[in-house]
Design a protein around this nucleic acid. Structure first.
Lengths: 276, 276
DNA sequence: CCAATAGTGTCTGTGAGACAGTATAAG
DNA sequence: CTTATACTGTCTCACAGACACTATTGG
């Protein structure tokens, strides 16, 4: 039977590193989606927010803290991406999810137990496809604030009953490039170095929004251009002008003959992603 | 004493996987620089080419094949980047090299001995800084050709006495993104999956040329705009128009009062990278 | 003078930013 | 009629692409 520990120090004192391999690899996943915030005014459209899936840790280390879903790689049987998909399947019960390798995080002290290298993945889903309930330790957090000031990025997460405030220092590694060194400096934070993984992933998504079609992985099959624009705006963190936006996405979408009505204002045409 | 093997099969038959950890991580490095090709015509400027450092394998697996320099991570003492710098120091005797994590390659059959996950790094240097001779198994290969046609990328490498022709299939992983699946399909190739690492790295450099200042890691302190333009052209694989190029880099460089003369034509001003 | 590169002036077309205007549903 | 969003027309400004032109050296 598993022994119960009260503090992390007690746990580590008793921990036998030989039980683990000397070196392990995990795949951690930043699962991102877009959620709707209900509106009181019947005319107004619901506000959209980015949201991410976090899991509450049941065991030491970081017992009670929230972290990204992840799992240890089975070196004999699976690739890192397969490992990530296995974890995603457990959390969401979905199989065909957009997945992209983000970065490999390998600080010496990421995990107090032993050396654990983590390859992080970004996953995008349309929340409407979620049917079955996810595991009881998991919860969707809305990103209610993300703000950069004086080289510090503040992120506030909210799952309806709990608020998490993260603070990450962001400095250029090299003046010749766009690589940043992220350092978790918040009082609250996610387990391991997952605050840093979160910020890296969000910046990746923001960058790729401009030159890829990854947004459509977060959209339902039919959507209005207003909805699509809101998703752009929440990811980029700024308002866009209608005509400019419509020019940009004109060749990425196709108009259907469906309409969305009953919104208290002029109905809008439903569009669909135009695959190549 | 080490036993000598004649074939790879014989070697693998005798190989005891328990001698290795069940799972290992290596840092592999794509070290890229720019070399000058001598010109017969005294008026003409020397043509530039990209060149990369390869190492000839002394042992099985892939004995006799060329591969990227790399080394196993020591899980107790170093990060992957430190591991990469240690390898670079051995190969080039240089310490302050531009280094950037590229991607983590983790196919199940990358290494016939045991499961080896490799995190690849891209390193850029100015060849003029190289003084001491590198290790005797290492050699600089010029990229004499890189051509994409019908989803196949052909790369030809030349170190002066040996030609290597690589062929890699390139297909989009997902229609919504810019991620490619690379498959080595050449008769000749580099050891392990290093042909794929090479191509990934070259594409990374090409992309970053447009929105970062990484070129200057491959330039000497003083350079003419003609030289800089040639480096851009060889990396991008196309000619650029002078006025357009000068507009683009105008705010990245500063003119010095030095001149380059004796070239059989009008002398050119020497410029320097303008740090922020 | 010739060959080759250095360096500049300027036209043109494309495309993003900006603003203003028209259209249409629900209540 | 009001409110809120849907959707379009068009002006302007910045800037990349393109071409033409001048400048300057070694031989």
């Amino acid at each position: 039977m598993k022994k119960e520990y009260k503090t992390e120090e007690e746990f580590l004192k008793d921990y036998d590193p030989k039980e683990f391999d000397q070196l392990s690899i995990t795949a951690d996943i930043l699962l991102v989606s877009v959620s709707d915030q209900e509106q009181t005014n019947y005319r107004k459209t619901s506000k959209k927010m980015m949201s991410i899936l976090l899991v509450k840790r049941n065991d030491f280390p970081y017992k009670g803290k929230w972290c990204l879903p992840g799992g240890f790689l089975n070196p004999k049987t699976e690739t890192l991406e397969e490992c990530a998909r296995r974890v995603l399947k457990n959390e969401t019960n979905l199989s065909h999810i957009y997945l992209e390798q983000l970065y490999t995080f390998d600080g010496l002290d990421r995990d107090p137990r032993t050396r654990v290298v983590s390859t992080a993945y970004v996953a995008l889903i349309d929340k409407n496809q979620l049917t079955e309930m996810i595991n009881e330790n998991a919860s969707w957090f809305d990103i209610v604030l993300i703000e950069e000031k004086d080289g510090i990025v503040d992120i506030t997460l909210d799952n309806g009953s709990e608020l998490i405030r993260l603070s990450i220092r962001k400095e250029l590694k090299e003046e010749t490039t766009d690589r940043y060194l992220f350092t978790d400096i918040g009082k609250e934070s996610l387990a391991f170095d997952h605050s840093v993984v979160l910020l890296s992933g969000l910046e990746r998504i923001r960058n790729k929004l401009n030159y890829t079609d990854i947004v459509f992985n977060m959209m339902p099959e039919y959507f209005t251009l207003g909805e699509l624009q809101q998703v752009y705006e929440v990811i980029l963190g700024k308002k866009l002008l209608d005509p400019a936006f419509r020019r940009i996405i004109a060749d990425k979408v196709e108009k259907t003959n469906k309409m969305k009505t009953g919104e208290g204002h002029r109905p809008s045409a439903l569009f669909r992603y135009r695959r190549k």
